[in-house]
């Protein structure tokens, strides 16, 4: 089973939820947790474990200036502005390149070949015998995280239960993470900002036809508007995590609150069992 944890808005506590959720489930069965928030991966801050690392690459063009006659067709074709052709020199902007391969196809002199460029890495960390953490990390200054998300998802293939932590927002990386999953947990906070962004996220999962439920984080009990929206949108609210200074403090130090507060471990496991019933999977 594949469960994605997503949120429309940044800073709702999505990663805190994912880490505690996965850790609590792993007390009862094997889990692989995948950090797909490749621009700001931080699940690893919650767990200390040795890790292995593999590089993620994407193809980029190499120009053979012996064959090139500087006709400029490649630069003209590239819709990302990654190639500028000077009278006797080619300039290539690797951070603008999307690896579409078009320049190589259009070159009339066959002067363009391809090489692999490292844009990030995947960490694989066995936290303990029941929990494995896979982290996608996009290198600083790289604009496109999709290949890193794909590589992190691939590394988790073949496991019975995988939990994916998506990046915030509703842009391409989130879609890439959500596609092909069985259930989405939307983490929100009960402010108009949180609700506004929850609406956008709910719209995405509805379009992708994936069942979803909501967790309200930092709830202060005044959740009427969020509850009304969820009723209207047919989304069940699975859990409310109250605003609590102790939880906030544990979290900003990088500790799991479900370790210090064992009652939460049970609640997270019950939530998992509930999702299993909804999706028809066995816990």
């Amino acid at each position: 089973m594949k469960i994605v944890v997503a949120s429309g808005k940044g800073g709702t506590g999505k990663s805190t939820f994912s880490a505690n959720f996965a850790w609590s489930i792993s007390r009862g069965r094997d889990v692989v947790l995948v950090d797909c928030d490749v621009e700001e991966p931080n699940l690893h801050l919650f767990f200390s474990a040795g890790k292995s690392e593999s590089g993620v690459t994407m193809p980029i063009p190499v120009f053979d200036t012996g064959k090139c006659d500087f006709c400029g067709k490649c630069g003209e074709f590239c819709r990302y502005g990654a190639i500028a052709v000077l009278p006797e020199k080619i300039m290539f902007f690797d951070d603008l390149c999307h690896s579409c391969g078009g320049c190589r196809i259009i070159c009339p002199k066959e002067a363009i070949s391809e090489t692999e460029r490292v844009i990030g890495k995947v960490w694989d960390a066995p936290v303990d015998e029941h929990l494995r953490l896979i982290t996608g990390v996009l290198d600083e200054g790289e604009p496109n995280g999709i290949p890193v998300i794909k590589a992190a998802k691939e590394a988790a293939e073949g496991n019975d239960l995988v939990i994916y932590d998506a990046s915030p927002g509703t842009a391409c990386p989130v879609i890439e993470t959500i596609e092909g999953s069985d259930y989405v947990v939307l983490v929100t906070e009960s402010t108009p900002f949180g609700l506004h962004d929850l609406r956008l996220a709910a719209e995405v999962v509805r379009k992708l036809c994936i069942p979803a439920g909501v967790v309200i984080n930092r709830s202060d009990g005044e959740d009427d508007e969020t509850e009304a929206f969820c009723r209207e949108a047919g989304l069940d609210i699975h859990m409310k995590i109250p605003f609590d200074r102790e939880i906030a403090r544990l979290q900003s130090r990088g500790d799991l609150f479900s370790v210090a507060m064992p009652e939460w471990q049970e609640r997270f496991f019950e939530l998992f069992e509930d999702i299993c019933i909804r999706t028809g999977g066995a816990p």
Partner: peptide
């Protein structure tokens, strides 16, 4: 359209 990045390679080939 969600996956298309607008590179136009398909128009080339």
């Amino acid at each position: 359209p969600v996956k298309c990045e607008g590179c136009a390679v398909c128009t080339l080939v």
